[in-house]
Design a protein around this nucleic acid. Structure first.
Length: 977
RNA sequence: GCCCGGAUGGCGGAAUCGGUAGACGCGUUGGUCUCAAACACCAAUGGCCGCAAGGCUGUGCCGGUUCGAUCCCGGCUCCGGGUACCA
């Protein structure tokens, strides 16, 4: 019987569904394991062959862990709120709920075909009110919390409301938007609005007027991680800085915990580095500079206090609060003009113009606290208002930006560290000997920094301070398709809806676009009120719903809590999280923040949500090209094209300054099956005399000269190409304009060109998993995706190789086609089996799935024909995580009884596995010639004898007797002839 | 600019506490089967020289350590990712 995957796979899947095989429940008798995939946003395009890569890997691991006796939670759901559905709605009027539901159905269908072992009973959709009730709930809890920096945790805001009337905010060490200082009396004198403003300053979910990334085209604000190079990540629209009232999450309060928590995680170093960089901790000194003729002290932050003797001027951000006061009347006009110009420049322009040095003198001076010199104060937009104090001490000799500024405005440059030449460039390196620096002269930079920290504190000039780059997350979006923010405005005071009134459901609307004035769609909803008070009209951003979904899977139907105590204590955290690295600075930061907040609340019992994380690489497309002769419908095979191009170039090169030799070219073309007349353009000219002259880095004297491509490269659908050979008939049918295409073939074939590109519709290189399942079956697709290369690496999809895996499964299937024999296996067969078991298990544990697939293939090659139950049954179980359909089918045929690995696997006999031997590399006359494997137990004379008896030794010694032989156990054996 | 990662046949990739480089698969070539093609199966397959035995060469480039380097060290080149007036 042939391997009929089309019959087997649906039947096995039906069986799993019917028996609810993958339904999991809390089982205290068994150890838990939680394998999670980053849930997908169900886009309209459906899945391509790259999307399931991570799901396949996690499914293999899940099935493996189950076989090892773990109770594995392996859920799947959908990140259903998001911009694309809403953009689509604006264009077509289709309600996002409708398109989202359709897309989810399609995804579900595609996923089901691959034989995943998800517990679909636990499926969550972020747009489901029963789900987003808990997103809103968490937001309200954040609104009702502040961050205490003494106990390092979130605490109820009511504590502040109780403390302020008695103590004011004296002694309060809490994360806040702006530093406040008030007494109990001052607090008591405030009206309700003022009190609420003060509390807002401390809330973890707060509303504030801040600089935000405003995207005009999308009509909404964006978080920092949603902006790349001044453009929106989705759609690539320009983003500008604007001051707006927005809701924010005080993520920055958790910066230190987010940073230190990384050390406890089994994540890739590169991912941790990305997060560390994003959090951006820097330790430095807070320092005060006296302003000349004023009692003001200008605060700066520096990580290089060692260079303080080299400070020759100061720079403020144009937005710095003191700019007005520090500007002298003479400088007023110039400063105002500069500030106005800065405001106009968009974020994008500023990034583009980083090399342009601009700035204005304020007219004021400050005193360098160490040299006592009077130094000018400038403003410039290279100093950012949002980082540190918005003011810097400038050390032009040792900071490239300060250096450029000093050069532009002709300010003195005093070197204080030896090295470099300050006339040409600043010397930024953190090494060298201090000079011109009084007490720290002669010290190395690193020692000088430490010494200066002490000195600054001792003199009371400032103190050690830690700065983070991590910003609070802007949490409101002026969009429709997101969770409504459960806040209403009672007499203008933002108030959270009571928990029992949640969820606040998204009301139906008919118009999804933002109003011209930037008002969100919800602003148009009639009666968008709570008890007569207007409700917030912004909705939550994309990351809201994905921040705690892993918790909801533990207890998805609980109406009374996000997750029950029991479920949380059993499942605790995600043991293995699989997903793309693109979420490094978004979801993976927010989710960790969210989890830590819930931990502070006592809702969850673990500080970190994702213990181990694996980033699957991207599967790129492999595009194919055909080459069209311009203005014709003739296509030329690639090697003929290349040949013609190369030779035509040679002809042209030989007559660079004279007329092109058309006869010679005609000959070349004819040899490659082409006719010169095809190339004659409508204007009567031939394109051959167009030459490109290209700089040659290897030989700058002789540039590369190349004819312009005289053939047009066109992407061709990879589905009508096999092994780079074009199906010419299918090509003619592919698009009407190619119906009468003609081909110049080589070896009677049309060979296409190829390149690795992103998998996308426009490049016609999208391979659909459904089609692969149709042609080869899910098991083959699963194994092939793993076989393609290391999981974490990006690699191109190439349908060609899939045959090899399919062949393997068919050969495996064929082993079971006769009667299964109960005969004893031979030692060789047992060795092969045990080696394979060991290798595959190790590889699965190391996520090295490509080599474990290879191990299966080797196993089959070594086994040849084998019909013995004792070999075949364990193999089916070993294969089950990878190819569950065929494995279960065959497993059933062996009459198995085992349900987990340890029952099914033959008892480990070390003799089959352990190489109780040692490898001795043998060198003859100083050159290593061969390796000799010998038992560990031998004595040195025995080793000598064994080495000399080796046939390799005979060969290398060529009959000569060794003059000397050195044997050191465990080391190389040296033979001198 | 700074930080991190990588570079191995025609292709995807194996192998690194330093020890026969190229597992496995694809592709290619040859063969068997077939009227034929496809499928399947068998064999060969880094490059160069050689009828062969065999030799030389070979893991981006230059140099070093070592009996021995894809692996360790120093200096480059190129590619990928992160980040960027972050003081």
């Amino acid at each position: 019987m042939d391997y009929d995957f089309k019959e087997i796979e649906p039947r096995q899947q039906q069986k799993w569904r019917h028996r609810e095989t993958y339904k999991v429940a809390i089982d205290p008798a068994r150890p838990k394991y939680y394998v999670l995939d980053m849930f997908p946003y169900p886009s309209g395009a459906g899945l391509h062959v790259g999307h399931p890569l991570g799901y396949i890997a996690s499914d293999i691991y899940t099935r493996y862990k189950r076989l090892c006796g773990f109770n594995v939670l392996h859920p799947m759901g959908f990140d259903a709120f998001g911009l694309p559905a809403e953009q689509y709605a604006i264009q077509t009027g289709q309600h996002p709920a409708k398109t989202t539901a359709d897309n989810i159905a399609r995804y579900r269908e595609q996923l089901d075909k691959l034989g995943f072992s998800f517990d679909w009973d636990r499926c969550v959709e972020t747009s489901d009110p029963a789900y987003y009730k808990w997103t809103q709930w968490a937001f309200v809890r954040m609104f009702e919390s502040y961050y205490c920096q003494d106990s390092n945790q979130a605490r109820p805001i009511s504590e502040l409301e109780e403390a302020f009337p008695i103590y004011g905010n004296e002694g309060l060490n809490a994360a806040c938007t702006t530093e406040l200082s008030f007494t109990a009396a001052e607090w008591n004198a405030m009206n309700a609005h003022q009190k609420q403003d003060v509390l807002m300053n401390y809330r973890l979910a707060y509303r504030a007027s801040t600089m935000v990334n405003w995207c005009e085209a999308l009509g909404t604000v964006l978080a920092n991680d949603e902006v790349k190079d001044g453009l929106s990540e989705r759609g690539g629209h320009p983003v500008e800085q604007r001051r707006m009232q927005q809701w924010l999450l005080r993520v920055s309060a958790y910066a230190e915990r987010l940073l230190s928590g990384l050390d406890t995680l089994q994540w890739s170093e590169s991912l941790k580095e990305i997060q560390r960089g994003w959090i951006g901790k820097s330790t430095g000194a807070q320092l005060f500079f006296d302003v000349v003729g004023s009692d003001k002290k200008l605060e700066v932050f520096t990580t290089r206090p060692d260079t303080i003797h080299g400070v020759t001027f100061m720079v403020l951000a144009p937005e710095h609060a003191w700019v007005g006061e520090l500007t002298t009347p003479e400088q007023r006009t110039e400063v105002d003009a500069y500030i106005a110009a800065t405001k106009k420049r968009s974020e994008r322009e500023r990034i583009a113009d980083t090399k342009k040095v601009t700035g204005v003198f304020t007219g004021s001076h400050a005193t360098n606290p160490f040299t006592g010199e009077s130094i000018p104060i400038y403003i410039s937009d290279y100093v950012l208002a949002g980082y540190g104090t918005g003011a810097i001490m400038a050390v032009p000799a040792h900071d490239s930006r300060d250096w450029a500024f000093a050069r532009r405005f002709d300010l003195p440059i005093t070197p204080v560290v030896e090295g470099g030449n300050v006339a040409e460039a600043s010397y930024d390196a953190k090494s060298g000997r201090m000079i011109n620096s009084g007490i720290i002269d002669g010290l190395d930079v690193k020692d000088a920094i430490v010494r200066m920290f002490d000195e600054i504190e001792r003199r009371g000039l400032g103190k050690l301070k830690v700065n983070y780059r991590l910003r609070d997350a802007i949490f409101s979006r002026q969009r429709y398709w997101g969770e409504p923010i459960p806040i209403y405005y009672k007499d203008g005071i933002a108030t959270a809806m009571p928990q029992e009134k949640l969820p606040l459901e998204l009301p139906p609307v008919s118009d999804f676009s933002p109003s011209p004035t930037g008002e969100p769609p919800l602003a148009r909803v009639k009666d968008w009120t709570y008890e007569g008070h207007p409700l917030e009209t912004s909705t939550m951003p994309g990351f809201a719903g994905s921040s705690a979904y892993y918790l909801r899977y533990m207890d998805p139907h609980n109406a009374d809590a996000l997750v029950s105590k029991e479920a949380d204590e059993y499942w605790r955290d995600v043991d293995l999280y699989v997903g793309g690295i693109e979420h490094a600075t978004g979801h993976l930061i927010y989710s960790r923040f969210w989890d830590k907040f819930l931990f502070d609340l006592g809702v969850v019992s673990d500080q970190e949500p994702f213990k181990k994380l694996v980033n699957q690489g991207m599967i790129q497309g492999r595009s194919n090209f055909v080459y069209r002769i311009p203005e014709t419908n003739k296509f030329i095979s690639i090697n003929k094209k290349t040949d013609a191009e190369t030779r035509i170039f040679a002809v042209q090169n030989s007559c660079l300054n004279s007329d092109v030799d058309l006869d010679a070219i005609e000959e070349i073309l004819a040899e490659n099956g082409m006719d010169l007349s095809w190339f004659r353009r409508n204007d009567g000219f031939y394109p051959f005399d167009d030459l490109d002259i290209i700089y040659n880095p290897d030989d700058p004297e002789n540039p590369i000269i190349r004819p312009r491509p005289i053939f047009t490269k066109i992407h061709v659908d990879v589905n009508i190409v096999k092994n780079d050979i074009l199906d010419t008939e299918a090509f003619k049918k592919w698009r009407p304009e190619f119906a009468d295409a003609e081909f110049v073939l080589e070896d009677e074939k049309y060979v296409c060109g190829w390149a690795v590109e992103k998998m996308s519709k426009s490049m016609f290189n999208v391979v659909n998993p459904d089609e692969m399942v149709e042609r080869y079956g899910a098991d083959t697709l699963r194994m092939y995706e793993m076989f393609l290369g290391p999981l974490e690496q990006s690699k191109p999809w190439d349908t060609n190789g899939i045959d090899g895996v399919h062949k393997f499964l068919r050969r495996f299937w064929n082993l079971f086609q006769g009667d299964i024999s109960d005969e004893q296996p031979t030692p060789e067969e047992l060795k092969t089996l045990h080696k394979t078991i060991k290798k595959v298990r190790e590889d699965i544990e190391n996520f090295s799935f490509n080599t474990s697939v290879a191990a299966f293939m080797i196993c089959l090659n070594e086994l040849g024909k084998c019909d013995k139950r004792q070999i075949l049954e364990p193999l089916t179980i070993l294969l089950a995580p990878f190819a569950p359909h065929i494995a279960e089918e065959l497993w059933e045929r062996t009459g198995h009884t085992a349900t987990i690995f340890d029952e099914a696997m033959p008892e480990h006999n070390p003799a089959y596995l352990v190489e109780a031997e040692f490898e001795y590399p043998v060198s003859v006359n100083g050159k290593t010639r061969f390796k000799k494997t010998l038992p560990l137990t031998l004595t040195i004379p025995e080793i000598e004898a064994a080495v000399l008896a080796d046939e390799n030794a005979q060969r290398w010694l060529e009959g000569k007797t060794p003059r000397k032989m050195v044997v050191v156990p465990g080391k190389i054996v040296n033979i001198v002839v």
